[in-house]
């Protein structure tokens, strides 16, 4: 009885066993359903490959240089598009979160544009930028930047006003308050924002590669669809998922490293 109530307690701590059990259990259940559906013949094999098929296909792919070529190209597209969006978006977001006038110039517009789906711009981007490398980078860039601006501005605005006031009473100039308080204080949140946004960057990459590309993971998924190679599609999707998981973990580890001073960091 006690154990049970502690699991359902709001924000209550649970043992490590329970946590890992929850993680593993979900995986097992999904895998079991998948196995049942494919081997049990609920779904036709062409539509849903068995886990073994996918695993086998994964083994084939992982040794083929073409696969790694796709992976490499996709990673470089995501990195460039995402970094450019950060390079432009973060400073704008910081300005918008710091000065009210910058906010007026930037925020309402971004708010408006971000509701226009970036995916809908893909055809337009194709017209403007062709179907070369730049087009994919543009899709990722445009997909991310307005969100980044808004989220960074929000991060900056949530820095405690009292910290700024304290710095003034210690003799800080406006410039010093920005450099030594605002920017220092916002770093952890900024990094979390980037961690969220890189996930979106992957989504936009696949969108771009599905529409117009002759390389990359999105393209390999599309090509596999033409030949009904669902197992290859699965491999492509899972690969993107794994890459995402890897970047996410990397961000989490760096976050812990960079900000040991954070209260109650997990």
């Amino acid at each position: 009885m006690k154990k049970r109530s502690s699991i359902l307690q709001i924000r209550g701590e649970i043992g490590r066993g329970w946590y890992l059990g929850g993680v593993a259990g979900t995986f097992v259940i999904v895998l079991a359903l998948w196995s049942a559906a494919s081997w049990g013949g609920w779904v036709e094999r062409t539509f849903l490959p068995t886990p073994l098929q996918v695993l086998e296909q994964f083994g084939n792919q992982i040794v083929s240089p073409e696969f790694w070529n796709h992976v490499g190209i996709s990673i470089s597209r995501v990195s460039i598009g995402f970094l450019l969006a950060c390079l432009v978006g973060i400073p704008i977001g910081i300005f918008a979160g710091t000065f009210r006038f910058a906010e007026a110039v930037v925020l309402p517009q971004s708010e408006f544009i971000r509701y226009m789906p970036a995916t809908a711009f893909v055809p337009l981007i194709m017209v403007w930028a062709g179907i070369g490398e730049m087009a994919k980078i543009w899709v990722i860039f445009l997909g991310c930047i307005f969100q980044i601006i808004l989220m960074v501005a929000d991060n900056v605005r949530s820095v405690s006003g009292e910290l700024l006031q304290v710095s003034y009473t210690l003799g800080a100039t406006r410039r010093q308050a920005i450099q030594q308080v605002l920017l220092r204080a916002v770093m952890p949140d900024l990094m979390n924002t980037m961690r969220m946004m890189i996930g979106w960057a992957w989504t936009y990459l696949v969108v771009a590669e599905l529409v117009a590309a002759s390389s990359g993971l999105g393209f390999s998924i599309l090509k596999a669809q033409r030949f009904l190679n669902t197992d290859v599609i699965f491999v492509g999707i899972i690969t993107i998922g794994l890459l995402g998981l890897l970047t996410d973990r990397a961000f989490a580890i760096c976050h812990k490293r960079f900000f040991p001073w954070l209260e109650g960091g997990r």
Partner: peptide, 26 residues
């Protein structure tokens, strides 16, 4: 505001990214 009038607030306003010494030296 200026450095000639130091202030201590009711809420905790130490700079969390600075050590005790660095806070005092701010």
């Amino acid at each position: 505001p200026g450095a000639d009038r130091g202030m201590v607030f009711q809420s905790y306003t130490l700079f969390p990214w600075l050590t005790v010494r660095e806070n005092i030296e701010f």
